[in-house]
């Protein structure tokens, strides 16, 4: 009888611990996603030039991280999350390329609904005069256009290093390449951007 009670108590204890552990994990993941989601959205938006599409891509990435990698250590989450997101962005570009080819075959342009306007969708920074806001919008719009003209790998390296603040190792994990490649892509990206935006940018 005592043995039964003891085994029941142990079972309850382990179940309780497992429940607490899951709850704790959920809270940690919630904090992580809340912290990273807005920057991830803007990075995806710059890549695909469409906010709705970017929202879908970010949500997909969040779901996949929760489903597959929630048990990994928290330090691994950022590069893993961005790796998933970058893969989603690449898939999206592939699908768009196929869609555009099909549309051309049917005699229609695939970009008919791609009327993205960075100024119209750009958010209003707080506590700034309209002139300052406009100046910031124009500078950001210029940067986004210049980023879109970069090769995809250079753009990824620049955004992950500069916007997300990942180190070289984290960026390499997120991009699925060597640290040397990250350094090369980043170096070329910065120089191309500086060249295309000019010295008097901002």
């Amino acid at each position: 009888m005592n043995a039964c009670v003891a085994s029941f108590a142990v079972s309850c204890e382990s179940g309780y611990r497992r429940g607490v552990s899951t709850l704790q994990r959920e809270q940690e993941l919630n904090r992580f996603l809340a912290e990273v989601e807005k920057r991830a959205l803007r990075i995806a938006e710059i890549s695909v030039r469409d906010r709705d599409e970017a929202l879908d891509l970010v949500q997909d990435a969040m779901i996949k991280l929760a489903r597959k990698y929630a048990d990994r250590s928290i330090d691994e989450w950022t590069p893993l999350f961005y790796r998933i997101l970058q893969n989603r962005v690449r898939d999206w570009h592939r699908r768009q390329a196929v869609r555009n080819r099909v549309m051309v075959w049917f005699g229609r342009s695939g970009n008919e609904d791609n009327d993205y306007d960075a100024v119209a969708t750009a958010p209003d920074p707080k506590g700034r005069t309209p002139d300052e806001q406009l100046q910031s919008h124009e500078a950001m719009q210029g940067l986004e256009v210049a980023l879109c003209e970069l090769p995809a790998r250079q753009r990824e390296a620049f955004m992950l290093r500069t916007f997300e603040g990942l180190d070289v190792a984290g960026t390499a994990t997120a991009m699925g390449c060597s640290e040397g490649s990250v350094k090369t892509h980043y170096f070329r990206a910065v120089h191309s951007l500086r060249e295309s935006l000019g010295e008097h940018w901002q």
Partner: peptide, 14 residues
């Protein structure tokens, strides 16, 4: 400078 602009655009999300 690029990071600052980016952060402003993130903070201003609707």
């Amino acid at each position: 400078e690029a990071k600052q602009l980016f952060d402003e655009s993130v903070e201003g999300l609707d």
